[in-house]
Design a protein around this nucleic acid. Structure first.
Lengths: 177, 177
DNA sequence: ACATTAACGTAGCAGTCGCTACAAGCATTA
DNA sequence: TAATGCTTGTAGCGACTGCTACGTTAATGT
């Protein structure tokens, strides 16, 4: 038994917070609405977490875990060439089920772009995780090509996500035809 | 004489507001700090603009104008193939002088992703403007290839911008090698 | 049974948010 | 000169922000 009662309670709260952030974004992540979504009071959120920063960090980490968990399910048995993997990923990330993650992701990136000390390391870690996932999935003739293809894959995917975010989803499809 | 005194004053204010938003982002764009940056009071901002929405729309439009103005200066005399144009753009947008625009751009995209009625049309318009600029700059054998290459260019550039935003600038360079 | 600590509710702090009512200054025109 | 309308400062509204002081109840260990 590694988890104390407090840790269990914390974890349950973080789960509800993750739901709320995925549904409404970081802009709507102020203490009282979050507390409402978690079924407690702002008072208790700051009882279980020392800070709003700590609370948000835990929530974003949980969101990232869910995302990578969903990506692991999408793993193909054998390595894929970059074009095939890219198509597969694009289809997945544009699914309505995953789009909330992309919205939070862009929000996170917009804060990391301003070098916010809370969000910058979180965003970088998620990006690195994606690169590692891509390298494991890619079929490449050597390691140099593998890392380069993973980088290309990340950039292509992020580009499609951002272009769809600004309402030009059909432009993404046009680029693939 | 088309511009009234009021319009001139409005325009001057918008210029200072654009400076402030480029420097500190939309997150820091609340009325009182903006007013301070413009050398007036929040009271006067809402005298010259009916709304905070209208004020921000005008400011973002001004920022977009500056950006496209800077891009026009970067126009090459003859059309370029997509690889060359992409390299040229990447070098430009990653310049420290232009990076503030990219920060605001991602922030704009993050709000458009949530279908915010204020930011969504502005972001889409800027994206369309970029596509048109790209089509005019690209060397392509026919119109179908031209529109597709412009879409590809937009996606590639946005991808590089977002990946750099999360602190993985070296990943962008790795993808280009 | 009693003492100690964990868990939580109530209420409120000082500060910021977008926005507005009110009035005073100002210039122009009648 | 008087009156009108444009420009602006002061002050404040109610709602919200992160956060905390204080008290009470519930559980726990001895």
């Amino acid at each position: 038994m590694k988890l104390s009662k407090t840790d269990e309670r914390r974890s349950a709260i973080v789960d509800r917070l993750a739901d709320h952030v995925l549904a409404h974004g970081l802009v709507a992540a102020s203490l009282r609405p979050l507390a409402k979504a978690a079924g407690t009071s702002d008072r208790m959120l700051l009882y279980y977490f020392s800070d709003k920063s700590e609370l948000l960090a835990a929530t974003l980490q949980r969101i990232a875990e869910r995302m990578t968990g969903a990506m692991v399910e999408q793993v193909s048995p054998e390595p894929l060439p970059i074009e095939a993997l890219q198509k597969r990923l694009a289809a997945m990330l544009f699914d309505d089920r995953f789009w909330p993650y992309m919205c939070v992701w862009i929000e996170l990136a917009s804060r990391a772009a301003r070098r916010d000390p809370l969000y910058t390391p979180i965003a970088a870690a998620i990006g690195q995780g994606f690169l590692a996932w891509g390298e494991a999935q890619l079929a490449a003739e050597n390691e140099e090509v593998r890392t380069r293809d993973a980088a290309k894959l990340l950039i292509a995917i992020e580009g499609m996500v951002l272009v769809r975010a600004i309402g030009l989803g059909e432009t993404v499809e046009r680029s693939l035809s």
